[in-house]
Design a binder for these strands. Sequence first.
RNA 1: GGUCGCAUAGCUCAGCUGGAUAGAGCACCUGCCUUCUAAGCAGGCGGUCCUAGGUUCGAAUCCUAGUGCGAUCACCA
Length: 592
Amino acid sequence: MSLQDTIEFQVKSAVKALFQSELESVEFQATRKEFAGDITVVVFPMLRVVKGNPAIIGEQIGQYLLDHVDLVIGFNVVRGFLNIEINDVHYLNFFNSIKDNSTYGYVDQKDDKAVMVEYSSPNTNKPLHLGHVRNVLLGYSVAEILKASGKKVYKTQIINDRGIHICKSMLAYQKFGANETPTETLKGDKLVGNYYVKFDQAYKAEIAELIAQGQSEEAAKKNAPILLEAQQMLIKWEAGDDAVVALWKKMNQWVYDGFDVTYKNIGVDFDAYYYESDTYLLGKEFVAEGLKSGVFFKKEDGSVWCDLTSDGLDEKIVLRSDGTAVYMTQDIGTAIQRIKDYPDVGGMVYTVGNEQDYHFKVLFLILKKLGFDWAKNLFHLSYGMVDLPSGKMKSREGTVVDADDLIQEMADTAEEISEELGKLEDYNQTEKETLYKTIGLGALKYYILKVDPKKRILFDPKESIDFQGNTGPFIQYTYARIQSILRKSTSTSSEDEVFSGLTLHEKEKQLIKQLELFPEVIQNAAEQHSPAVVANYTYELVKDFNSFYQNVSILGADTDLEKSFRVALSKSVSHTIKNAFQVLGIEVPERM
RNA sequence: GGUCGCAUAGCUCAGCUGGAUAGAGCACCUGCCUUCUAAGCAGGCGGUCCUAGGUUCGAAUCCUAGUGCGAUCACCA
């Protein structure tokens, strides 16, 4: 029974004994640090059942607890708040129970139903940028959090490998490419992206020319020859034209190879890949089926729609009049295909920007109407855009923060700071570079993950990401500090040493209290699909540890017992940091 | 215009299902490295919680209206 459950039970008993009333629940909160006590019972809500002065009621309940509960050793009442002091034995017992658990906070898989988490899902005509980075970090982390909370998880993506966008790159490559191929210094995704930009430049030049010849801007945008040519190419692709398909395959492969390098760099992975070119046909099949069952209806021109007006939404097209698939068609197909491939999946999480809120609302509704029971367990992990001070990032216009560049810059900053501090003289070059990457990525990932996914992020490249304060490196640093202590510790304390008879220092107690929260934090983060919950918790834990570290001597403790206890406590904190950061996808260094 | 999201210190952000004098970091100012890593610690400065109503013993938190910013409402993805 947890501390809170115990106290709740006893408070109810107290109210029954003192006031002959039944309490449904007891409201708790952490005791504010300016008052004595470890846990606080809020008296006000009881006034509905127990009439009287809250201060006096608190006083009476407090006295009852002191008399009847061993672990309560004191109390005070401030207005309607009953602050209860808990004895050290409780905290020591708890600590003994978790101190050697290196997977503390994680729950073994308990759910037979799996969750599929989709993230990244890029178009194949340009390299990944900062916007994708947020997506990838969020999706990966939520997947890891769900795993830690006891779910089986599959990570996946849908690759938008077909469409007009890739044709634009292909066409520009044909026209201006001179058979260029990826090289060591030019990754395939960058190469293809360059041609996407070149297409846009040529397109804009043509528009300007047409306008100069007297066409309206609108007409010019539609009639630019290079655009018409790209559209022709798409039609050829759909018809299976050998040359076009061959080029498409070649250039997509360049992009995939480039993406792989970036994903590896970021440190994320996938269990399953889906390609739009594979799933849109299945979507079409189910549209046909839905048409039969009356979920969809056909308009005179042949286009197929879903009427969502009774759900407060509009009519939504699911198939064009020419019979070709739209985005929705493909997403219907992909969802169904995934459940076919992984029958144990009972729900899915889609990590996609909030600009697509409406799309997913509609998609989920349609899947429900089609009668899939898993459709009630679909969640759109909607996140805010990453904007630059200059506004939105646009690949076409080259105003993007490139993912590979950003990661490199972060590592460079880590190197500068590390060199300046000069604590790593005995590290060789490889060790140093690994560490710089760990720290640089730690800074970047933490910076992005610590903010609530819903909120948009304004990223200013000129104001570099911090390495001090509430940051990844600060937390990594604390971990490294603990490792240093563990290396130096000559304490022979065995794994199964049980600590008792100690009087806890205020800072020690605070740390144990904070550790106690971790499993709940993981569950909360999973429910809310929010890595930010884990990040903020970790920061609090680390602040508490540093305060302990600077105010209490660990290796210089007065007695062997104290020393051994403090080393064990530090070790436990380091496990928790590591486990928390692992679900954020951030590595922790042995030294820094 | 309809719908959805966001609004908290100069800046970046916490604030759980309503609870005590609204918390951190950065920046600025003070102290602390002959003792376990100063990417740190201890402290100071800094707030009409967008506005106006409402519900409540109690509202940054819930409800309504408004303001500002963003997104979306395509036979684009």
